[in-house]
Design a binder for these strands. Structure first.
Lengths: 113, 113
DNA sequence: TCGTCATGTCGGGAAAAGACGAAACGAAGT
DNA sequence: ACTTCGTTTCGTCTTTTCCCGACATGACGA
């Protein structure tokens, strides 16, 4: 079950998606459950539409947002469920790296030897 | 409303440190609370000593490891306390992006009940 | 059908990251 | 002091990322 050896590919996409200031900025736009089109994201971040589309694709691969088509628009929104899942995966990975000995907060799911 | 702030600098360092396959690999070496020198990390990851040193510096900046000098050696180990803190910060950031309305599953992922 | 508009895809160029070897630094031991 | 060994810093190269403009795709309205 536990495949904590390397890091799961999905978690890797999650981390890489989040490890960019621009994409962090994009994620902030979705605060409060906002739905935004590619063009809106582009404008609010000062990016070209193509760049916004690319970055949103990366965020979608990372499980951070979902997209639905509405006419010729595509509405993006945050994906809390998947985000929570990736966060748990990340937690599990870190729990392996952390000494599961003393009362440390980052170890509570994976114990193995 | 929730602060539409980009993201804490420390959390950014944390994410960037983790968003690298080799650094993830390095972190795995510290499983079980192991203490490793730069040379050991280098050898086990198939890296040059200088590269290992650089990557460990990034991990230290991200709060993932701590270093103590022991003679001419430098022993690195995981830093569970700081990791847990950064994880909580990350979770807080993501909670802002996530709609706090529906099953906001991403606002409880890290808690260590 | 045709034109338009929003999005996605493709190439390219600038910037950053990743890894290396050579050399500098620091802490023992001879 | 000198030598040795582990670590760090520095310069360089290669690879990847980031953003762009130009073009292709797909959907709607005339």
């Amino acid at each position: 079950m536990t495949t904590p050896q390397p890091l799961d590919g999905t978690t890797q996409d999650f981390l890489k998606a989040l490890a960019s200031e621009t994409r962090q900025q994009i994620m902030m736009l979705f605060a409060g459950g906002a739905e935004l089109t590619v063009g809106e994201v582009a404008e609010r971040c000062g990016l070209g539409p193509s760049t916004a589309s690319e970055q949103l694709t990366i965020l979608r691969r990372g499980g951070l947002v979902t997209a639905t088509r509405d006419g010729k628009l595509v509405r993006y929104r945050a994906d809390p469920t998947t985000i929570a899942g990736r966060l748990v995966e990340l937690q599990g990975y870190l729990a392996v790296c952390c000494p599961p000995a003393t009362g440390n907060a980052c170890s509570h799911a994976v114990q193995d030897d």
